[in-house]
């Protein structure tokens, strides 16, 4: 089933779980459990980043979450009106974040993992900061049906 849904979300960390549950349900017909996990984690990381860093943990602000189901992909957008993040942060984020020395526990990351996880879990990630709003667009392709 194709279609698009928009959710308006309070900038409150307690609502993130509700949004995750809603988006997971919207996508559940078309995606495997593993892909649903990937989408849920990416959405949670993106939404949490906006609330914690964009809005500095301030409640009373609003985020817009868009979910668009296409024939071959799902596109999830997180739109906010907070001060934008540095786009270079997203470009530099990747699996290198987890290239730590596991024998040196002091070197292990405790934070700054969200953008890397988004990049690792989604097929395309794009960030556009416009005059009044920022848009993080995350795309997950549907797994191709087996041809065998």
């Amino acid at each position: 089933m194709a279609g698009a849904v928009q959710l308006l979300v309070d900038s409150d960390l307690d609502t993130v779980a509700l949004v995750a549950r809603a988006v997971r349900a919207i996508c559940s017909d078309r995606l495997s459990e593993e892909d649903l996990d990937a989408i849920e984690l990416s959405l949670v990381e993106a939404t949490t980043n906006v609330i914690k860093h964009g809005y500095n943990g301030r409640s009373g602000e609003t985020l817009k979450i868009g979910v668009a189901l296409h024939s071959d992909r799902v596109v999830i957008e997180v739109v906010d009106t907070a001060p934008p993040m540095d786009a270079a942060q997203l470009e530099q984020a990747g699996e290198e974040r987890f290239d730590f020395d596991e024998t040196n526990i002091e070197s292990l990351p405790e934070g700054g993992m969200g953008l890397a996880l988004i990049r690792m879990n989604m097929d395309e990630v794009e960030y556009v900061a416009q005059k009044r709003q920022n848009r993080l667009r995350m795309t997950k392709m549907f797994a191709k049906p087996s041809t065998s």
């Binding site: 849920e40 949490t48 934070g111 993992m113």
Partner: peptide, 20 residues
Amino acid sequence: EFVDSSGLGAIVATLKRIGP
């Protein structure tokens, strides 16, 4: 059923507190 990077970070912090 679900852990995000904040939860994982808390587990890492706990390991650091336990020590080497």
